[in-house]
Design a protein around this nucleic acid. Structure first.
Lengths: 108, 108
DNA sequence: TCATTGTGCCTCGCAAAATGAGGCCCGTCA
DNA sequence: TGACGGGCCTCATTTTGCGAGGCACAATGA
């Protein structure tokens, strides 16, 4: 998958995923990898900064949870503001797709 | 339109446009602006570097043409290698859209 | 005549984002 | 003990678009 196309779509992906429920970083990476059949492997260097930024703007919130074996995980959960932002982002995404499609031509 | 989403889609747009015939820079900008109803204004700072890069890789070729009034325009035309690249890019684009759609959910 | 607008090419510094590589900690299992 | 996997993270580099600017000349109109 062309890395350049991905740019800017990460927040959209993350918020969409977190819409289904709280997740932790490693889990997000694995989920994306599995759902795309390995086509897209979200990199840690892209994921964590993106998560932190979304948290800084309060679109998501995080909390630590201790597992039975004593190890900790940091879960991220979408916030109301994030929901709203996601809705706007989705609209933008659809516009964007339509726009490119208009030039590229309909799907074959 | 979110600038971040645009990243990486410029070559795809340019090659698609040039597929319809040779065009010059200013014309490309105007065409995009008009076809999108002003939603997307391709910036010169994005266009020219992109064109030059496509030319450097020989996906497109350029030539100067003198108008009746004596002024010059630089036309860009797609090359065979560019055609092939475009085909691959389109495939990638469709994959990309499908991927994001899978997470974002179907269009409303 | 002169100033503005439009056409038409370009470059440069900046900001945002992904990559690749690395670091760190700890549980489990051989 | 040592390797592996889970789990968090940062950092330098690269790529890209943006904004702003520069340059040149034609046509328009006050």
């Amino acid at each position: 998958m062309d890395r350049e196309l991905l740019k800017g779509s990460t927040p959209l992906l993350l918020l969409s995923l977190l819409c289904e429920g709280p997740m932790y970083g490693y889990q997000i990476i694995e989920t994306v990898r599995q759902r795309t059949g390995g086509t897209y492997t979200l990199k840690e260097g892209a994921l964590y900064p993106a998560l932190h930024k979304l948290e800084a703007t309060e679109f998501i919130a995080s909390y630590w949870e201790t597992q039975e074996n004593g190890r900790e995980r940091r879960y991220y959960a979408i916030q109301p503001a994030g929901q709203a932002f996601l809705t706007a982002k989705k609209k933008e995404w659809n516009q964007f797709v339509d726009m490119v499609q208009a030039f590229v031509g309909p799907r074959v």
